[in-house]
Design a protein around this nucleic acid. Structure first.
Lengths: 216, 216
DNA sequence: GGCCATTTGTACCAATCGGTACAAATCTAG
DNA sequence: CTAGATTTGTACCGATTGGTACAAATGGCC
């Protein structure tokens, strides 16, 4: 039986519901989860270590023991996000294979932002945007994730082109960049303006454009 | 004769070059300028008041005297940016009137990011992205700027449509949203990846799309 | 000169930041 | 049980945060 690790109470702090047989890894996971959520909605700078500890219901000694520094925690959060996207439990299918799935991919982000009250943009982008010049390691983590997403979209477009469904003049990777910029920009503007209309309009135009490139 | 207020030394701090007749407003302007630059490249959270004071060569008492709080300083920086964009000294022409000027408008941002070493995105967006839920006043400042830019682009598209150069089915405001998302997203991704290729590809596709909507 | 508002220097504040020290508690293996 | 490693609680650290207090300096104006 899987022990209940924690459950949310209205204000976002955790209720202690550890199983009788105390699982040590749970603390680590709770901290990772809390950090990911807080980084997503506040960024790195606006999120203090103490805040993460409070939400995850852990002490400072655990933090030091499992992560040592805030920077390493960010690194692990990015690793977790990376695995999550690549895996089959991702909230949206990144491994696009049909034109319809491309539509779904775009529209998922609009819906996701709506459901989050327009308070969050891309979790990876939010972290990446807070990095300084000295944090080249973390920046590499972020780049890796972006490149993987780009690769998935580029592969799809290349497949469609090979199937004669896309003009030969279209570079799959450049079109992938276009799609990524739409999503990142839409989430960014949506978060700032606290509204999804702008994002929606951009997505509709982007989809219309991609459709206009289709051959059959 | 206009007094030399300050000049940059390599490390970014100011050299004191006050005119003999000490101008009190100069301190205020230097702080505003320093704040704008630091907010642009680091965001609000990563920029401390002391850092602004150091760069502008002013003391804490001046800061308190002219701005009282950091929040009010941000407000004034946004006001300065707003005036700057609307005025005729803006680094790029926002009052687009021809298709060529639209091209220039898009491509300016790519070039600007390149020249800044890909370390900065949009100054307004960077500030807006750092706002919390409680700072609704500052968010309104940001919205106002975005709405003005959107209005300029929408006006241009509406003009073109009235002239029969754009399909009647195209909503000028929605197309403006598309353009803004491209620029904001491109700057955002470019800053994170420290590279402008993604942005460039997105802009080329965006321009190709807009061109495809032209009727003559 | 003398007055009064504006402008500035210096010292200071409590709160929070990320991080450390170290011993006590706990789990696991023999 | 005991031994040794893992995990955790508590107290603490110097540095920095945004902001304040208050007097001294400076300015224009009469």
């Amino acid at each position: 039986m899987i022990p209940v690790i924690h459950s949310r109470v209205p204000d976002g702090t955790v209720e202690f519901m550890k199983s009788k047989a105390n699982e040590p890894v749970a603390a680590r996971l709770r901290m990772l989860q809390a950090a990911q959520e807080l980084f997503h909605q506040q960024g790195i700078h606006a999120t203090s270590v103490d805040q993460i500890l409070q939400r995850s219901g852990t002490g400072k000694s655990q933090f030091t023991h499992y992560f040592k520094t805030k920077e390493r925690l960010v690194h692990e959060v990015l690793g977790q996000l990376h695995e999550w996207l690549r895996g089959d439990n991702a909230p949206v299918n990144y491994k696009v294979r049909t034109w319809d799935e491309l539509d779904d991919w775009f529209r998922f982000f609009v819906k996701a932002q709506q459901q989050g009250g327009c308070e969050r943009a891309c979790p990876v982008g939010t972290i990446g945007n807070d990095l300084s010049d000295e944090q080249e390691l973390l920046r590499q983590d972020v780049r890796l994730i972006y490149e993987w997403v780009r690769g998935q979209l580029a592969r799809f477009f290349a497949e469609r082109r090979a199937a004669g469904e896309l003009a030969e003049t279209v570079d799959p990777e450049e079109l992938a960049d276009f799609c990524i910029v739409i999503v990142q920009g839409g989430l960014f503007v949506g978060k700032i303006k606290r509204e999804t209309d702008t994002f929606e309009h951009a997505v509709e135009h982007a989809l219309a454009y991609v459709q206009s490139l289709r051959l059959k």
